[in-house]
Write a protein that binds this DNA or RNA. Structure first.
Lengths: 233, 233
DNA sequence: TCTCAATCCTTACGAATTGTTACAAGGTGG
DNA sequence: CCACCTTGTAACAATTCGTAAGGATTGAGA
């Protein structure tokens, strides 16, 4: 039984040791870092299940780090911060953090919130940036789609967001509302047709027959289903 | 544009209206309840994306309700409570709640936390997406009907809802009222002939002889019976 | 600062799907 | 057989979706 790996990124040594102790006791493996640089270096060799991040770091802006971790790496990110303003919490959560805990915190609550996040884990994308499906290979690090002959076509950031959403939940219905909230979009009052356009462009790059799409299927009045057989690596 | 549905369960009317206003503004549909009983009754016809629950309810123990919602219904549950003790939060989260917000709360943070929960896709029931009956095979993941020669005809979402209802209860009478409530429709005032039309269209796709249907039989004045021999896989 | 290019959102209109209406057909009880 | 109900389905209207075209935004480089 492998234990979930939790990384701790905080510049105060006492907090690091306190958290590490409690989390080890609670059944997690931990890795502690005082600097963002060391933490990011460790990401090359480790794939944490949960990242605890303090926003007040000496060598980076914490929020950009959170944003990159959450959106690009798809990791579960929990902010632990002394900044207690509501606005701080809201922007932290909107940038992709999964939870926001205020210092001083109770260790038991930290454990409970980590467990709550791990109950419905984010799938797949934690393990890699390359996914293969039905003759295609998507390279999210390079923003390119490779077909079965090896030819590559680039895709944009917006297209990649939609594609990742599909590849993380293949063969399941994804409602438009889910997509909107997943992609950080504020559900605008005016009909948001942007999603349709994104999907339309993605379909073109996947060379879907508009009359009979094989990969991205529209369920009228309900959402979309991605039908590929996905393997992440 | 279908908006995510958020239910509000709180015995204080001011809080209900405050939350409902803010959430509507933020792009969600809302349903408010003051009692657990009314809330649970509504679950029969609605499937909320997120349930906000206050623990201090007059007619139920909030924690058991949370537990049932989270485990049995697989819904996203966020507790909003005046009980600020760490132990309350820990037990709430351990019983299956996805988040725990303390009163008094800031509406903006509630919205941000709801969005954070909706970002990661709901765990889906992987149960039964393929059913075979009388030479036909229904693929609910692909929304297609396959006949005995292997030819596939697509069916729509509305048709699929009816078909699934039949395949889940073969050889049993299903009344119109049952269908209406099962398919999310509030029993409309004007007599709803939409169901008849759906069934008519489904019969066409199943190549039923209108004068002598073999699979979907009409029981005059009572409802319908599906007569196929169904095997789910 | 200005220009250019890339990207993305908004708008607009045609197409597909679904609900609604209207009427025909069939059943039931007198 | 005749009123009166329920059901089937064609035709229409409303809603939702696809996508081309134009404009707003962003960032790089001069």
């Amino acid at each position: 039984m492998t234990r979930p790996l939790v990384t701790i990124l905080d510049d105060e040594p006492e907090i690091r040791t306190l958290l590490a102790e409690v989390l080890e006791e609670a059944g997690f493996d931990t890795l502690s870092f005082g600097r963002a640089r060391a933490f990011e270096a460790a990401l090359a060799t480790h794939t944490p299940d949960v990242c605890l991040v303090d926003l007040s770091l000496p060598d980076t802006d914490g929020l950009t780090l959170v944003h990159r971790l959450a959106l690009e790496q798809g990791a579960i990110v929990i902010i632990i911060s002394g900044r207690a303003q509501v606005q701080d919490r809201v922007t932290g959560l909107e940038l992709g953090a999964d939870d926001y805990i205020i210092k001083p915190f109770d260790p038991a609550e930290v454990v409970a919130r980590i467990r709550a996040r791990l109950r419905s884990p984010k799938p797949a994308s934690q393990t890699g940036n390359v996914a293969a499906f039905n003759g295609w290979t998507a390279h999210f690090d390079r923003y390119t789609l490779e077909d079965d002959t090896g030819a590559e076509t680039p895709f944009s950031h917006a297209e990649g967001e939609v594609l990742r959403l599909f590849l993380d939940a293949p063969k399941r219905l994804i409602s438009r509302a889910q997509m909107q909230t997943s992609l950080g979009g504020v559900a605008s009052e005016s009909f948001d047709r942007a999603m349709d356009v994104r999907i339309s462009r993605l379909r073109t790059k996947l060379r879907e027959d508009p009359k009979n799409p094989q990969l991205i299927k529209t369920i009228y009045g309900a959402g979309y289903i991605f039908l590929g057989d996905v393997t992440w690596s």
